[in-house]
């Protein structure tokens, strides 16, 4: 017997490739350290998650909503530091290259 797949309508969820916690998909998803909204949600100033409200990866391995972080960096108090570890914020090269499998 042979099974031919003619058409498959499937459902999938997307999630950001945050690099860190992809061991188990069931983890309820991490939140942005600034706005405490899940990465897959969007920052308070956006309405749509996804490409409209992307993430930003720091070299310090911390990840935030891009809008949140830019707003933070824009304030004088930030001193251009990562809000989590107070190291100077350096935006990481895209992680994808490293992870490419």
């Amino acid at each position: 017997m042979k099974v031919h797949v003619k058409n498959w309508h499937a459902i999938a969820q997307w999630r950001w490739d945050t690099g860190a916690s992809d061991a188990d998909d069931d983890g309820e998803g991490d939140v942005c350290g600034i706005c405490r909204v899940p990465y897959e949600g969007c920052c308070p100033s956006c309405k749509m998650p996804g490409d409209d409200c992307p993430l930003i990866w720091g070299e310090c391995s911390h990840v935030f909503h891009m809008h949140c972080l830019l707003q933070w960096i824009g304030t004088a108090a930030s001193k251009q530091q990562c809000p989590m570890d107070r190291r100077p914020w350096v935006t990481a090269e895209r992680k994808v290259a490293k992870q490419g499998r």
Binding site: A12, D25, V96
Partner: peptide
């Protein structure tokens, strides 16, 4: 979309198949 990954929800959706028997 290099930043994103997919997570399938395998129990949802429908599949159109053709079973080829003898």
């Amino acid at each position: 979309k290099p930043d994103k990954r997919l997570r399938w929800l395998p129990h949802l959706g429908t599949i159109h198949l053709e079973i080829e028997l003898q």
